[in-house]
């Protein structure tokens, strides 16, 4: 068993299990902590895919900034008002799981029917070269500079919007 297979199964199983634990916990703080673990194992999967820049950004932006924001809001709100959330109609739960299972079966069937591994074989040196900051930055500042500026403008708009929404009461 080589190291690539081992790392894929380690991070993949951790990601899948923490995702399931995340949606079934009653306490939202615990589910936020499991989501952080899920994001960290996704960063490990990105490393196995030779995407170094995306892996580091995943840790900094998702596991760092976004989840800290979530935990901050969760601890700001009143925790005892969240007890009776799971007492919902069991029909809804069963329906949701059945629908998700059908869609998952469809996706798995489509993935195996198309069998992309017959056409795509991994070229390791090209894959390493594609994941470096240099390759991504060159594309970002030449061919994709307009979407990059649009993303910056979107972040500015979101900052101002969050400030305005959180500042005043709308009544």
């Amino acid at each position: 068993m080589n190291i690539e297979v081992f790392l894929f199964f380690l991070f993949g199983i951790v990601a899948a299990v923490t995702a399931v634990i995340m949606i079934t916990r009653r306490n939202p703080v615990i589910s936020a902590l499991f989501l952080i673990l899920n994001f960290a194992s996704l960063a490990g999967l990105y490393i196995t895919l030779n995407a170094q820049f995306i892996a580091v950004t995943q840790i900094i932006v998702y596991a760092g900034a976004i989840m800290i924001l979530f935990l901050f809001v969760l601890m700001l709100l009143r925790p005892e008002s969240q007890k009776k959330f799971f007492e919902l109609n069991p029909k809804t739960k069963i329906f949701a799981i059945i629908v998700a299972f059908i869609v998952f079966a469809q996706l798995v069937y489509m993935i195996f029917f198309a069998s992309p591994s017959a056409n795509i074989s991994k070229d390791v040196s090209k894959s390493v070269e594609a994941g470096t900051i240099e390759a991504i930055g060159r594309e970002l500042f030449t061919n994709y500079v307009v979407p990059f500026e649009a993303a910056g403008f979107l972040l500015l708009a979101a900052t101002i919007g969050a400030l305005v929404l959180a500042k005043k009461k709308f009544d």
Binding site: A16, A19, V20, M22, I23, L88, T92, K93, F95, A96, I97, V99, A100, F101, V103, F104, L107
Partner: peptide
């Protein structure tokens, strides 16, 4: 799909 189930339940 775990995320979809999480949104629904």
């Amino acid at each position: 799909l775990v995320g979809v189930v999480g949104v629904l339940i």
